[in-house]
Structure formats: structure tokens, C-alpha cells
């Protein structure tokens, strides 16, 4: 590859996506989101369900087109990639891993075919059979050893963790620059999750792949990520180095997220005051901050005006008028 290694692989500039509901109302799934993913970087997009993280993934994968803004791959606007060969090239360089390994593999195809087929489509091997060596190497790389034993297996013969490994091998088979991983471990048994996260870290080390890791689990985001982006109701509200964002969250929503994570260290201690949303009330969002209805530090201006990004630290920025640091109470 001859591309510059300094320029971002992917960037979103003021991207919005609006869906129309049946009743004529608009659903702002993603609003004014800007982000960049640099080579070899693991960026975590954190948010609750309905925050727009999966829509963001779809916009990147090209399965949705933005209502406003530009998604660009290595400086090229995705909307202008039209020719079949250019689309194919984009698909090769940006791959995806899905949440549910039981639904994302074709149950009629063997592991070897599943991993080899993308290589064949993208002309990396002349045929699946002749690419067998590469397929076996990939299977070994994702921890399916001995690989020859897995080559002819069908998905039903594999456990969830093994299936997810196949899905990762399939994504890595075409030597992508970027892999979008949408909750890749949330459906797996806890004892297997660490192995999959490790695999993602290894793929970054050995093949230099960048990842967009989408999750609602802050702990795994901190474990795996270089940077964390926090999303709420379609808007990014905080961004910064992973450790920094979790140790010193500034946005009230990030603070609520951090406090909500089950924490064994907290057992026996008096219940802390944390913000739990009143689930009964979902207010119509105006032009202000989407977290306004639940925010403990909201002021009048939050209702009407969306705050701009402000830096609280080098590379750590937040969109909140009243941002204040919250340190973890129980640092060991």
C-alpha cells in the first residue's frame, strides 16, 4: 500500500442522519457528528441503545447515506465513490464484525469458504482452494488451532466464541485498513470475551488494522481503546484518550455512565447519588443539549442552545456548558 500513513483513514465531518417515521415526525438518529480514525488506532464509540452508534456504523459502511455532512475515506467523499471497482475497493479496506456470531455467518458454508470467499472476491487469491494456505494461516492467527480441524467445519459445530473468531478472520482476510466492530463481545460468555478483545489488539499490532469499536461497556472500551467517543441521542458529547475520559469524565452523561458500571469495590459502601433517568419521561428534543432533561447541572441555556466543543485537557474535549471534572472516588 502506498497511501500516506499519517492522514486519517476515515473521517466524518458534521454528519447527520435523519429518518422519517410513519407519522411525519423526524428522527434525528445522528446529529452533527465529526470524528476521525487514524491508522492503527482503536477508537471506541460508547453509548446506550438508541444513541445512534449503530447508525454511525451504517453510515461508515455505506449502507446508509448521510442526510448532511461528508463521510470520507482517505480524503475521498464516500458519496462520490460510484464505480463498481471503487466500491469494491472501499469494501475491501473497510470491513465489519457484527454483534451476533449466530446470525452473521452463513450456516451452509464451511469455515474455510467463509474466510476464503472474500479473498477470492477481492482477487487476493485465484480460488478458495488455492488460497487454503492463507486461510489456514488466518485461522491460526485468530486462535482456531489446529486450523485444519476447523477448515471444513460448519457454524453449527462451533461455539459462540469460535464463531466470532471466524467472523474476525473473515474481516481480516482482505487485509482491511479499518474494521468496524459493533458490540463484538456482548453476546459471548464472559470467560471468552477477554480472548476476543485480545485478538483485536493483536490484529492491530500485527496487521496494523484500525478499529472502530462500538459498545456500551465502558470497561472494555477502556481496556481496548486509544480514544473514547461518548454518544448520547445522536450527538457526541465527550471525546478524549480512553483512560483520561474514564478517570476524569467531564460531561454529566459520561459521569452517569461511569458511575453505573457495576463495581465490586463499591460493595458495602453507602449508596452513592447517581443520576438514574426517569424512564417514564422522554421529552421532545429541541435545539438544545439532548441530555438536558436528565442533567443534574442543566441551566436555562442548555434547553435552547447546543454547547460547542471545549477542551478540558490536551485532546480531551466536551460539549457541555457546565462541565466539571468528576474523579473516581475509589482510586486504589
Amino acid at each position: 500500500m502506498t497511501e500516506s500513513h499519517d492522514a486519517p483513514i476515515l473521517s466524518l465531518e458534521h454528519v447527520s442522519k435523519t429518518f422519517h417515521s410513519g407519522k411525519g415526525t423526524l428522527i434525528h438518529a445522528v446529529r452533527d457528528v465529526s470524528l476521525v480514525i487514524n491508522p492503527r488506532e482503536i477508537v471506541c464509540l460508547v453509548g446506550e441503545s438508541g444513541s445512534g452508534k449503530s447508525t454511525t456504523a451504517n453510515l461508515i459502511m455505506g449502507t446508509e447515506t448521510p442526510t448532511q455532512g461528508v463521510v470520507s475515506y482517505r480524503g475521498q467523499n464516500l458519496a462520490q465513490i460510484r464505480t463498481r471497482s471503487a466500491i469494491l475497493d472501499y469494501r475491501r479496506h473497510v470491513q465489519m464484525i457484527f454483534q451476533d456470531p449466530y446470525g452473521s455467518l452463513n450456516s451452509l458454508h464451511t469455515v474455510g469458504y467463509t474466510v476464503g470467499r472474500p479473498m477470492q472476491i477481492h482477487h487476493l487469491v485465484p480460488s478458495i482452494n488455492r488460497g487454503a494456505d492463507q486461510i489456514l494461516r488466518l485461522l491460526r492467527q485468530v486462535g482456531l488451532t489446529p486450523p485444519s480441524e476447523y477448515y471444513y467445519k460448519l457454524p453449527y459445530q462451533l461455539s459462540g466464541g469460535q464463531r466470532q473468531r471466524v467472523a474476525i478472520a473473515r474481516a481480516l482476510a482482505v487485509q482491511p485498513d479499518l474494521v468496524v466492530a459493533d458490540e463484538p463481545v456482548s453476546m459471548l460468555d464472559v470467560s471468552l470475551r477477554a480472548g476476543i478483545l485480545q485478538l483485536i489488539l493483536e490484529a492491530r499490532e500485527s496487521a496494523g488494522v484500525a478499529f472502530l469499536y462500538i459498545t456500551h461497556d465502558l470497561a472494555s472500551a477502556r481496556y481496548i481503546g486509544d480514544r473514547i467517543l461518548v454518544m448520547y441521542k445522536g450527538r457526541l458529547c465527550e471525546e478524549g484518550p480512553a483512560e483520561e475520559v474514564i478517570a476524569h469524565p467531564h460531561h454529566p452523561y459520561t459521569q452517569a455512565l461511569v458511575e453505573a458500571v457495576p463495581n465490586p469495590e463499591r460493595m458495602g459502601q453507602p449508596e452513592e447519588i447517581i443520576v438514574t433517568p426517569d424512564l417514564n419521561e422522554t421529552k421532545v428534543l429541541g435545539s438544545g443539549c439532548p441530555y438536558y432533561p436528565l442533567c443534574p447541572v442543566a441551566t436555562a441555556q442548555c434547553q435552547d442552545t447546543m454547547p460547542e466543543w471545549t477542551f478540558v485537557q490536551d485532546q480531551h474535549q466536551v460539549r457541555c456548558f457546565n462541565a466539571a471534572p468528576l474523579s473516581m472516588h475509589h482510586t486504589s
Binding site: S191, L197, Y223, M328, T331, S332
Partner: peptide, 24 residues
């Protein structure tokens, strides 16, 4: 020990997660 070690901590150093090899 493995089950407890499977959860990455929110505080402290980012040590390598071992997980538990194999599957149930």
C-alpha cells in the same frame, strides 16, 4: 479466579486480560 479476572477494571493499570482458555 478466571471469572473475576475476565472483567477489565475501570480503575488502575490496564493489565493484559487472560480470560479463560477453551470453552465450557
Amino acid at each position: 479466579q478466571g471469572l473475576i479476572a475476565c472483567f477489565p477494571p475501570l480503575q488502575g493499570s490496564r493489565k493484559v486480560l487472560e480470560g479463560i482458555p477453551g470453552s465450557p
